[in-house]
Nucleic acid binder design. Sequence first.
RNA 1: CAACUUUAUUGUGCGGUCGCGGGGAGUGAUCCGUGAGGAAAGUCCGGGCAUCACAGAGCAGGAUAGCUGCUAACGGCAGCCGGAGGCGACUCUAGGGCUAGUGCAACAGAAAUAUACCGCACCUUUUGGUGUAAGGGUGGAAAGGCGAGGUAAGAGCUCACCGCGGGACGGGAGACCGUUGCCGCCUGUAAACCCUAUCCGAUGCAACGCCGAUUGGUUCCGGGGAUAGACCGCUUGCUCGGCGGUCCCGGAUUAAGGCGGCUUGAGCCUUUCGGCGACGAAAGGCAUAGAUAGAUGACCGCACCCGACAGAACCCGGCUUACAGAUAAAGUUGCGAU
RNA 2: GCGCCAAUAGCUCAGCUGGAUAGAGUAUUUGGCUACGAACCAAAGGGUCGGGGGUUCGAAUCCCUCUUGGCGUG
Length: 122
Amino acid sequence: MRQFSKKYVCIKKDREFRWLFKNGSCTVTKAFICYFRENKRRNNRLGIVAGKKIGGAVQRNRARRVIREAFRLIEPELASSTEKRYDFIFVARSVAVHMKSTGILKLMRKNIPGKLAQRSDS
RNA sequence: CAACUUUAUUGUGCGGUCGCGGGGAGUGAUCCGUGAGGAAAGUCCGGGCAUCACAGAGCAGGAUAGCUGCUAACGGCAGCCGGAGGCGACUCUAGGGCUAGUGCAACAGAAAUAUACCGCACCUUUUGGUGUAAGGGUGGAAAGGCGAGGUAAGAGCUCACCGCGGGACGGGAGACCGUUGCCGCCUGUAAACCCUAUCCGAUGCAACGCCGAUUGGUUCCGGGGAUAGACCGCUUGCUCGGCGGUCCCGGAUUAAGGCGGCUUGAGCCUUUCGGCGACGAAAGGCAUAGAUAGAUGACCGCACCCGACAGAACCCGGCUUACAGAUAAAGUUGCGAU
RNA sequence: GCGCCAAUAGCUCAGCUGGAUAGAGUAUUUGGCUACGAACCAAAGGGUCGGGGGUUCGAAUCCCUCUUGGCGUG
């Protein structure tokens, strides 16, 4: 298990990861599995998990970078569309290694906003 | 030209926009410059560095194993010697000692470090005895091989040649090589125990050093409070009595956390000199990651063969393993041409 | 990152020290027992001993190397 995220909007602690896996909602695509839950902070927070399953260090780094880049692009859209802020954890799957970040971004646009809306309705 | 052998280098490149780590400049917005590998890998060896231990020596345990050198050191490298393979360039080689001792050698075979089954010969006699190791067969291995002499039949029993071992002599720095009118013929296995020679203290940056409060734990010290009652420990088993503790404050210690260690080091490049070479010496030049859940991605343009294996985590020297291709040098063999 | 183990039948393990037959339990299949099953009894099949190389007459075992799992350590 390997965890990563950016400095000022990161999820670091092991217990936070566990908490999200247990209590968060999730959505699944071919490239990643996304867990998310509303938080009470000012920022959206990000955590990425790239397990040993998907390959060596090169493959894991690649997956992390691609997901992080895609999240960087979609984050302003999420922030502007709703007042609420969320914690996200992306678990990389082996397909993500061979994808471009634009491909991941499309998957995120397609899946995430809808799911967020669903949760806030219910 | 074809088929090879060896060695070395390289590992998409350039420009633009956004994004990330470290550094520098600035009050600041921001700007400048920099940012993974030959294996960064496996963690198989050797060091540096750090803490602990340590008078010296020995035993035990581990490692290495032709020689001479190189080196901080090595199980690495260079050159040479011996052995094996190849027409050759060349490649591979744990390569000390079973003639120090002990152990092991299944099955087969008469017999496995010793012997006599079938044979062969002689003597007795119809069955044994004696002498043999030519031949047969077994096995990885059967008292060196082969020929002649010799003999009842045979045998290094004797002789010539060859092989191996020892001694002597000569050459070499040494491993070794050569000669020999001398002495011998000894199974294999030490990646079996072991012997000989040389080397080795242990643990590893999650080492180690420093900082650290309104927090928690632990034990100790100092001061104060309480000793009405309760509880715990000690005081011999019980009762009484006694002593210490509980609560508060301060200090020490430790854990989460932060900083250092953290990149200038046996450094890299060029030239000259010494050396067959590994390498060493001198001169000149270069600044080249330092993260701490862990930094390199996305998009656009151009070119081509459309880019392999793959990501630093204290640092070096090697080894081993993975690797699409591209380039250069030296050399061998074969064919053809001149 | 550092330190250290293991790999043998479908599954769980022994054999490795000290070299020459790969074995046990379980599972599978067949037969018996039973009215039928379970249990029990008897038998059978099933092994590149993780891969490669070396030492040896001979390697699951000894040596080297690679691969795959697992453990410890803040």
